[in-house]
Amino acid sequence: MPELPDVEGFRQVLLSCGSRRSVTDIDVRDAGILRGVTEERLRTELKGARLGTAWRHGKWLFVPTDGAPTLVFHFGMTGSLRCCAREEPIEAHDRLVLTLDGARNLCYRDQRKLQGVQLADDTAVDRILDGLGPDARAVSREEFLELLSGRRGAVKGALMDQSVIAGLGNLLCDEILWRSHVAPRIPVRNLSEKSLRRIHAAMGRVLTTSVRAGRVPPRRSWLTGRRDDSEPQCPRCGDSLRSGRVAGRRTVWCPRCQT
């Protein structure tokens, strides 16, 4: 389930595989991942275009091109980008394959096809960004306090709201709240400034480590590394972890540590 660290990893894939390379061929193997663009237009716009330096905001990845609109990726729940040698076999879930000069293929893989790929001019890019909050890696403590001030609903729901802060997903939010000793169902308005400061600090630490790993790492010292055990225990206090739905998502927390 790609979150900010995963998408940052995909950005690195693009930088190493496709930056400043031209698209020599386009294979749309499943048009179900195209959003607002036809196969014909995608080929017309992209073939021969040179990919620029990819940039990310939250869970969105933007690739400017020379002489064409920006190529935009959103990875939904199962999407990924892979850089492959041209002779490597195409896999079943490779929905879009861009052949690049230099004998490489850039493959967009996605099993469930909940999001996908689009072309966006500057106005369309601005429209996407207007619907998003600031990127989670760039939010200062003061800005974080301001963004959450006065919000209603559970704190996990607020953190997962992409219009508030862009990039946090289910695993990140559970990990951040566990490290902050904050229960996911607590209303934001019931949290003290001290608690919000702890959440912001934990967010920074978790993102730094996760971006370095290219994912939320399933370390045994992390909540993430225990959540899928048959009888999960808190790596901090050893108490049994609980699981339930918060903000519509499966949520794991420690009832002893997170109060």
Rank of each mutant, 00 (worst) to 15 (best):
197 R>A: 14
219 R>P: 00
28 V>R: 13
256 R>D: 01
203 M>I: 01
26 I>S: 02
101 D>Y: 11
58 G>Y: 15
157 G>M: 14
225 G>K: 02
180 S>A: 15
188 V>Q: 09
93 H>I: 03
210 S>P: 01
57 H>D: 02
70 T>V: 12
156 K>T: 01
107 C>N: 08
139 V>G: 07
8 E>K: 11
225 G>M: 02
83 C>F: 05
200 H>L: 02
35 R>D: 06
38 T>L: 11
84 C>D: 11
123 T>M: 05
176 I>R: 10
138 A>N: 12
249 R>K: 12
97 V>E: 06
95 R>K: 15
58 G>E: 14
165 I>H: 00
121 D>H: 09
41 R>C: 02
128 I>F: 05
114 L>V: 11
180 S>L: 03
175 E>W: 01
234 C>T: 00
127 R>H: 15
124 A>E: 12
125 V>Y: 09
211 V>S: 07
66 D>A: 15
196 L>E: 00
129 L>T: 04
63 V>M: 13
243 S>H: 09
162 Q>S: 13
106 L>G: 05
154 A>F: 08
94 D>G: 10
89 P>G: 15
77 M>Y: 13
163 S>D: 12
113 K>D: 03
16 S>Q: 13
146 E>Y: 08
35 R>G: 01
239 D>I: 05
196 L>V: 04
208 T>E: 14
240 S>Y: 09
93 H>W: 14
148 L>H: 10
111 Q>R: 12
72 V>Q: 05
112 R>K: 09
5 P>D: 10
27 D>W: 08
